[in-house]
Structure formats: C-alpha cells, structure tokens
C-alpha cells in the first residue's frame, strides 16, 4: 500500500499542475482575446493620421494626438457628443423616473392586473425595439418631436424601461417589507417611510440601473440614425459618415464611444450579476 502511494503521488501532482497550467493559460488567452482588440483601437486613436493609414503597423501608440485633434475639430463631432450625452441623460431620467415606481408597485403589492403588466414588460423582449423608430418618426413629425433629443430619448427609454422596471423590482424586493412596516409603526406615513428607509438602501442600486440606462442609450445606433438628422448622436454621426470619413476619424470616434462604456461597466460591475440573476425570473 505504501509503495503504491509513493509511486502514485508524484504522478498525480504532475497531472494536477498540468491542469492548473492549462486553466491559467485559458484565462490568459481569454483576457487577451477581450483586451487586445480594445488596446489596438487605442493604438490607432493615439497615433497620427499618417500612422493610422500607414503600413506596416508596430502595435505601439506614438501618443500623437493628431487624430484626436482632427476628430474633435471635425464639423459636427462636438455637437454629436453633446447630443449623445443629452439623449443618454434624458433616457436615464425617463426610464428610472417611470420604471422605478412600477418596480416598487410590483415588489410591494398584489393586485389584479399585475401579471398583465409583467407580461407587457417581458413581451418587449421579444420585439426588435430599434424598429420602433420607423413609425415613431411619423408620430414625431406630427408632434414636432422629430430630430430632437427628447424624441430619441423616448425611443431609447422604450429600450431601457423594461430593464429599469425589472432591476428596480429586484432591488425593492431585496428590502424586507418589515423595514417599511417598522417605519410606519414608528410614525411615518408611506412616503416618509419610503424616503427615510427604502430610498437610502436602494440608492446605489438605482444609480447602477441609471448608469445601465445611460449605456443603452449611449450605444444605440439604428433608432438614432433614423430619427435624427441635424441633431445626430455620436453613433448616428459615425454610422452616417462611415463611407466618407477617413480611417483616423473612425478610430478616434470609436475610442470616444468606448471610453465612457468602459467607465460605466466599471462603475456598475458589482450590480451586473445581481441584475441579470433576477432579470431571468
């Protein structure tokens, strides 16, 4: 028995360390797969226009801000950036402002019609929402909302609202109703209990879902391209000028799209998984 062990043990250790090596190698490869393309985009964005169209490339940035300067001074870019931020902020406010009360109602009350509303929200998932831009373009022309940040924000809110409802629903469900009831017995009315007890506890989560709504709007291309002409958002601007714009403009624009997204994902990383865990139900 003892000999068997002594023969067997080193072999097992070898197998285990080989598996360990493969495991770590897989992680490294996957990290490179995710990060390398982003790195290369930034290499291009931080090179001079000549280097961007030059060949062969070194894969190292020259930290020449020529491309960035060109991008920022290109007609319409700054306005497009501004529009993107404006639309995204409006989307954030609208979707949380409309979605959070609904999420609260779903988490705290049982009432006839609750299931129908849930169905309505879940149903939005089965529809290709950017297509809404087509009929809404007509509606907006009639109501004077065409080519405005607000009109586009409405379409983006349709995209973000289901998420806002489901995420806030899960956030509120995570706050035991006993806490609210305790506040009621301690002299609060419903609104005071909400403001003094529930709101402070869900605030970080609400902020995360707001950032999520912002990102959805920031990234949306199709509806933005359909609904705006003068007041283009950055993605709409880039898509519209793809045929005509030089490479360095595209890459600098791409980098401008990517940077905020990186920050947002970093900001909400703790909530990403909780959100999707619940959004499944």
């Amino acid at each position: 028995m003892s000999t068997a062990v002594s023969v067997d043990a080193p072999h097992k250790v070898e197998v285990r360390s080989a598996a360990r090596f493969l495991f770590i190698a897989a992680i490294v490869v996957l990290c490179i797969w995710v990060l390398l393309p982003i790195y290369l985009l930034f290499v291009n964005a931080l090179s001079s226009p000549q280097e961007v169209s030059g060949f062969p490339k070194t894969g190292l940035p020259s930290f020449d801000f020529g491309s960035v300067r060109f991008f920022l001074s290109f007609a319409g870019v700054l306005q497009a950036l501004g529009n993107s931020v404006l639309v995204a902020v409006l989307t954030m406010v609208l979707s949380i402002g409309i979605g959070a009360p609904a999420g609260y109602a779903l988490s705290r009350f049982d009432f006839p019609g609750k299931e129908s509303f849930r169905m309505l929200v879940v149903m939005t998932r089965a529809f290709p929402l950017p297509l809404l831009a087509l009929p809404l373009a007509v509606l907006f022309i009639r109501t004077g909302l065409d080519d405005t940040a607000f009109g586009l924000a409405i379409v983006h809110t349709v995209l973000a609202l289901p998420f806002a409802v489901l995420i806030t629903f899960s956030l509120f469900s995570g706050i035991p109703i006993e806490l609210e009831e305790a506040a009621w017995t301690l002299g609060c009315n419903r609104w005071q209990a909400f403001r003094k007890v529930v709101l402070p506890l869900v605030m970080p989560g609400i902020a995360a879902s707001a950032v999520f709504a912002f990102t959805i709007s920031w990234n949306e291309v199709f509806a933005a391209a359909v609904l705006t002409i003068q007041n283009r958002t950055l993605p709409a601007f880039l898509v519209q000028s793809l045929n005509v714009s030089p490479l360095h403009l595209k890459f600098a624009g791409g980098a401008a799209l990517v940077i905020p997204a990186l920050i947002f994902i970093f900001a909400v990383r703790r909530y990403l998984f909780a959100m999707w865990g619940i959004a499944n139900r």
């Binding site: 995710v34 290369l40 990234n219 799209l257």
Partner: peptide, 23 residues
C-alpha cells in the same frame, strides 16, 4: 477576471465594428 470578461458588454456593435476594422 469577471470585470475584464464583461467589458465588451458595455460596447455598441458600432464600436465593436470599428475595433475589428482596425484589425
């Protein structure tokens, strides 16, 4: 690792197109 893996989640398909165009 989770953060790194989930980075592309925040990117639009436009950004992803431009990134792979660079390649």
């Amino acid at each position: 690792i989770l953060y790194i893996f989930s980075i592309p989640l925040g990117l639009s398909d436009l950004a992803s197109g431009i990134i792979w165009l660079a390649i």
